[in-house]
Write a protein that binds this DNA or RNA. Structure first.
Lengths: 346, 346
DNA sequence: TTTTAGCACTTAGCACATTGGAGTGCTAAG
DNA sequence: CTTAGCACTCCAATGTGCTAAGTGCTAAAA
């Protein structure tokens, strides 16, 4: 168990280091602390904190910086989220104050805004569709045997994809297919839709089209698209600023990571608490072991839950960032509830 | 006028410098030249070439590197495009060997491929639609007063956008609007469509909808989208490698430039010759004055012309790059002609 | 007139030493 | 338990010397 003074020192070191980035020495620290003891005393305390694994040195005669566990302890026990700056809040609200036509625009804008506010890299994930119901399905013939498939879910999501149908499929067959889909699939949850597509639907459609597989692929494409296009990244370039390692190779890997939605899904997960802080090697993905990740869910009532996240250096000012992410998630949730409200009753 | 030997030296200096990046000294040069003269002679020649502004030094006692004018002279008079490597050609063809559903996929893939082959940043611009005819227009009601507008041009381009219609617009009015558009606009060139939208169409539509402006905005949105989404960028990150200036600010500006389609349109223009080389400050955009840009048109017969381009250091190996771009443009053109062929006769 | 050898001079880049400052750990006394 | 004092460590900045690669110039040779 830590003494009060040790807590005070640990807290101060984290705060000073995360705000100016320099290792904290005993003399500098003594001048900032509310208690007055000598620097030698501080040195002793720091030594014990280091022994406990909460602090470390960059070299044998340097000041102390927090270790991963030090940050962890700070975040878990010492930190109080900052109240978000009113100027930041104004910025968030004004950026949400547009009339967005599509939910994607709101969520994409959020990623940009969040990265701008933090100067880190930000991620946003729109509410997942798993529980959404398929509300409508359209096949629009575009001429030249091309067709656009459009899929509408009850939370307002619209996905579309154009494709070619084989020349031997006649329009009436297509009509029948649409009828099957409308009768059998519309109204179901997407997960159920997936299941039906794997079982009886191909048989039913097979009556009208010779090779239903190709046709159903397209259906799956649209569903897959709606699963992979949930992720938005803002401030990719900020990575260059806060990434200590100017090793181009790892930066490159990170950039490509940001384009792989499956990996992003793994990294961001769905935080169990409302706001979750992962520090350094606590992050499952090895590429991120020198960074910290703050993830938070936001809840759009019956329209599911999404995730926002920021990726920054382990030495980020946690209290400020946690405050900011906390405020942002409620603002975003509110904005999306508004959005759905507009759709539902229009 | 330059003597034969001066030409030989200039050519050699450009080639050596663009292949190993080191300033070329008189001794090194003498050992590479087919003629044998002493290094002192070379020095004299280099001095006169420098006086003419074709070479320059990095510091008072350094070897020579080509000046912008030196590169210019080399490109205009001395260079012979390399035959493209057969492995590169294989790669291009195999990447084109997929069945693409949309033209955008082909053009986007091209940007990636071109950047991979060159290790520079690549741009591709799909054929412009100006002369394309509006082949079809659909309004698909999605429920909840939402509608998807779909616009098909005769070169196979499909654009769509979802939007909300005011609650006071009834379905029949919408039907009438579609009829007006189909009767009056379908079959016209897009430029004519634009014109009609600015003149008589609003009046006609006004009969059915109270506030046609809002409605027509959407139409314009779709058209604008098809104008701005012509640009694809590949290998953004390569910029970090070949950009000498590790000045983060200018890199940042370049990245944002790549997202602004109007600026891209200015920079890439439509090259007057088939392949155009712009070196350093010859590029109109100031941000690019330390780079070189090779642009080339590709011609998809009656479906218009597009542009491909690579952005690299002024010290790029021009003969190789020009050869590569030349081969790529014919391959891409061929692939797109194939693509349209499939559409047209399906 | 052109070419060449020779020489004095310049510069970048590197290895190396020097120094100052910030910081530590330890000890012995308060 | 706290503190002053001291020896010690290490980084970072600065300066020095040296080398390699290059130049321009001059005067002699071709």
């Amino acid at each position: 168990m830590l003494t009060d003074r040790e807590l005070l020192i640990l807290k101060a070191i984290v705060q000073i280091y995360t705000s100016d980035g320099q290792p904290v020495g005993s003399k500098a620290l003594v001048s900032q602390l509310p208690i007055h003891v000598s620097s030698a005393t501080i040195r002793n305390e720091m030594a014990t904190l280091e022994e406990m694994g909460l602090l470390k040195k960059t070299h044998s005669s340097s000041g102390r910086i927090p270790s991963i566990q030090g940050y962890r302890y700070y975040v878990d026990h010492l930190l109080k989220p900052d109240k978000v700056q009113s100027s930041d809040l104004r910025q968030i609200r004004s950026s949400f104050n547009h009339q967005f036509q599509e939910i994607d625009d709101i969520v994409a804008e959020s990623a940009d805004m969040l990265s701008k506010l933090t100067s880190y890299t930000a991620f946003t994930v729109k509410p997942e569709l798993k529980d959404a119901k398929l509300e409508g399905f359209r096949l629009v013939p575009l001429g030249n045997h091309r067709v656009m498939a459009i899929l509408v879910t009850d939370n307002g999501d619209v996905q579309n994809k154009t494709f070619k149908v084989p020349t031997n499929v006649d329009p009436e067959a297509l009509e029948s297919v649409i009828r099957v889909i409308n009768d059998e699939l519309v109204g179901l949850k997407l997960s159920e839709v997936f299941q039906r597509l794997a079982t009886d639907i191909p048989i039913q459609i097979g009556k009208y089209i010779e090779t239903p597989e190709g046709f159903l692929d397209i259906f799956e494409d649209v569903l897959k698209k709606s699963a992979t296009e949930r992720f938005f990244v803002g401030g990719r370039l900020n990575l260059l600023d806060f990434s200590k390692q100017h090793d181009l190779g790892s930066i490159r890997s990170l950039y490509s990571l940001m384009n792989r939605s499956t990996d992003l899904a793994n990294v961001l997960g769905s935080p169990d608490q409302n706001i979750q802080v992962q520090i350094g090697n606590e992050i499952t993905n090895n590429l991120l072991k020198n960074y910290s990740l703050i993830t938070a869910t936001y809840d759009v009532d019956q329209h599911g839950k999404g995730v926002i996240a920021i990726l920054g250096p382990t030495s980020m000012p946690y209290s400020k960032m946690i405050g900011l992410v906390g405020a942002f998630r409620t603002e975003l949730a509110r904005r999306l509830i508004d959005y759905y409200h507009d759709i539902d009753d229009s």
